[in-house]
Each structure stands twice: as C-alpha cells, then as structure tokens.
C-alpha cells in the first residue's frame, strides 16, 4: 500500500532517456562530472556559436567556449535555480567572449570610439554579392561592446536585461549600443539596397 509495487515484467516502468537540465544540474552541483558532461554535450554548440559570433575567429571562439564551460562547472554551486541553467550558461559564454574580444582589440576599448575599420570599398563587394560575408566583415569592424550587444540581441534573441548582465552595463546603455551597431551595419550594407 505504502510501498510502490515492484515493476512487473509485463509493464516495465517507462524510463525517460533524457533527464531535464535541472536534474542534471542538481547532480553536477553535488559534484557529479558525468551529469555535467551530458549538459556540456547538450549546450556546447550554442556556447561555441555565441563565442564565434562575438569573436569572429574559430580559434578564439574555442578558447572562450572552453573557458566558459569550465567556469560554469566551478560556479555551479552558486546557481540558485537549476531551471535557469541554460540562460545562466549562455550569459557566462557571452561574458567570456566579450572579455576575450576586448583583449584582442586594445586600441579601441571604448564603445563610443569610432572603429578604425574603413567601409568596405566596391572592390570588396565584387567578389561578394554575398551579403552574409559583408555582415560578418561589418561586425568585425564594430567595437567589441557594440558587437556583443547586437549579436546577443539579434542572433541569440536575448533580452535587454540579460544582455546588460553580460556586458556589465544598464539596459538603456545596451539599447543604445544595439542602436549604434545597427546604424553602422545599415551603412556598411548600403550597397545591397
């Protein structure tokens, strides 16, 4: 009555093959690396993609993604709500990528400094016709803070508050950066109108 009956042969209990993130997070918080490995397998592509979009370089993105995932393991005992793991991890990824991007561009640390990149000239456009590569090039010319805000908003769909937490600025500053980034990108892509 009070004990659950032993599972009968005819009706094996359904075993959910994929435990939810939150259950794995709880086990990983206890110190179970196998549980964490499942989480890494689930989320590594997105973590890497965020880093790649922010950094624009595969080697740097791999470094930032690795740093972010290892940092997540170390900081996991601080995560209060296991259900929020995914958003929490992606914020760490954005932050690590931005830090590395800033380290890579010491000459223009401030976001209000006009980036040195010259607008793509017509000769660069001839090969192109390729809008997507033109965007990648234009993104590379943005200051890291602007680029990160735009990427997280427009490619990853994060909210202003979340991005503010990643970049360490207020939501209004984030909104301004996205707007400035958008204006620059619109200019850079003007030849495709």
């Amino acid at each position: 009555m009070f004990e659950s009956p032993p599972p009968s042969e005819a009706h094996p209990p359904p075993r959910p093959p994929d435990p939810p993130d939150s259950a794995l997070v709880t086990r990983a918080q206890d110190g179970d690396p196998d549980a964490f490995e499942v989480l890494v397998r689930r989320h590594q592509d997105t973590v890497y993609r965020i880093a790649l979009r922010v950094l624009g370089d595969e080697g740097d993105a791999a470094d930032a993604a690795q740093e972010a995932l290892v940092a997540a393991w170390h900081r996991l005992p601080d995560l209060a709500d296991p259900v929020s793991f995914r958003a929490w991890l992606y914020r760490i990824a954005g932050r690590r990528a931005l830090n590395l991007a800033r380290a890579r561009t010491p000459e223009a640390p401030a976001d209000n400094v006009e980036a040195a990149a010259t607008p793509a000239g017509p000769e660069q456009h001839t090969v192109a016709g390729d809008l997507r590569h033109a965007l990648a090039r234009a993104l590379a010319g943005l200051p890291p803070g602007q680029r990160t805000c735009w990427v997280l908003r427009e490619l990853e769909g994060m909210g202003y508050e979340e991005i503010a937490d990643v970049v360490g600025a207020g939501p209004d500053a984030v909104r301004g950066r996205i707007h400035r980034a958008r204006a620059r990108l619109v200019e850079e892509l003007a030849p495709w109108r």
């Binding site: 490995e37 890494v40 592509d45 973590v47 690795q66």
Partner: peptide
C-alpha cells in the same frame, strides 16, 4: 554552428 570536436574532451 557545431562546436569543435575537442571542446568536450578539453572541458571534461
């Protein structure tokens, strides 16, 4: 976008 194959091993 797919993470490079070594990422999982390096992290773990």
């Amino acid at each position: 976008v797919t993470a490079p194959p070594r990422l999982l091993d390096d992290v773990m």
